[in-house]
């Protein structure tokens, strides 16, 4: 497959959040600010690229029957790496993402790409696929986080745009996450329909 289209499919056409609707738990849970969304997105991208690479390298050694448990162990190993590195170098971010870092293990996007792509393709394509999907995920998280932070807190990446008195607190709280993501997916659906 052409590497360029392999890369871009994750960004738009098959965006994991906005089109495939996978991995909604971290998407909603960590996007109370744009910076949190970016941190979570990059952590997931790292796990996605590394697990895709390793799985596509060892795929011929793994018996078909224990395929899924083996994938999960490989993914969990990289999640542990991310967890320890973030704890050491970005303790603030580690604290605000909280339980959602170990939960990258059960993010459907990571296991989904391992099963659907990395277990069938060569290492290079798998890296490119992981990078595209990861950046698509990151992009959607940053947009969602930016909208929520701007409406709910009046800031963007902690830079203040308008005074606190005019903010709508609802958007940084739980309901805001559901509602903003709902409308984002609605817009993408509308655009996709108009193209056809």
């Amino acid at each position: 497959m052409n590497q360029m289209s392999n890369f871009t499919k994750g960004l738009l056409r098959e965006n994991p959040i906005l089109v495939l609707i996978l991995g909604t738990c971290p998407t909603l849970g960590v996007t109370s600010s744009a910076a949190n969304g970016l941190g979570m997105g990059l952590a997931t991208t790292f796990v996605l690229v590394m697990s895709n690479l390793v799985i596509s390298l060892v795929k011929s050694q793994i018996p078909d029957k224990v395929r899924i448990p083996s994938f999960i162990v490989i993914i969990a190993a990289f999640v542990t790496v991310v967890e320890l590195v973030m704890q050491a170098y970005t303790p603030g971010l580690f604290k605000s993402l909280g339980i959602f870092i170990p939960l990258i293990v059960v993010n459907c996007i990571v296991l989904g790409r391992a099963e659907a792509f990395a277990s069938k393709n060569n290492p290079l394509s798998s890296i490119v696929d992981g990078l595209g999907m990861g950046l698509g995920f990151t992009g959607a998280l940053v947009i969602l986080g930016s909208i929520r932070e701007l409406l709910g807190n009046g800031t963007l990446f902690s830079f203040r745009f308008y005074p606190e008195n005019y903010t709508t607190l609802l958007f940084v709280l739980a309901p805001g996450a559901f509602i903003v993501l709902g409308y984002m997916i609605a817009i993408v659906q509308k655009i996709n329909k108009a193209k056809k």
Binding site: I21, L170, L173, A174, P175, G176, A177, F178, I179, L181, G182, Y183, I185, A186, I187, Q189, K190, K193
Partner: peptide, 22 residues
């Protein structure tokens, strides 16, 4: 509305349900 069919309207509904739980 056509664009909101399926998941989007479900998410917005969940948002309102979350508001009730607040």
């Amino acid at each position: 509305p056509a664009g909101l069919k399926g998941t989007p309207i479900a998410l917005v509904t969940a948002g309102i349900l979350a508001m009730a739980f607040m």
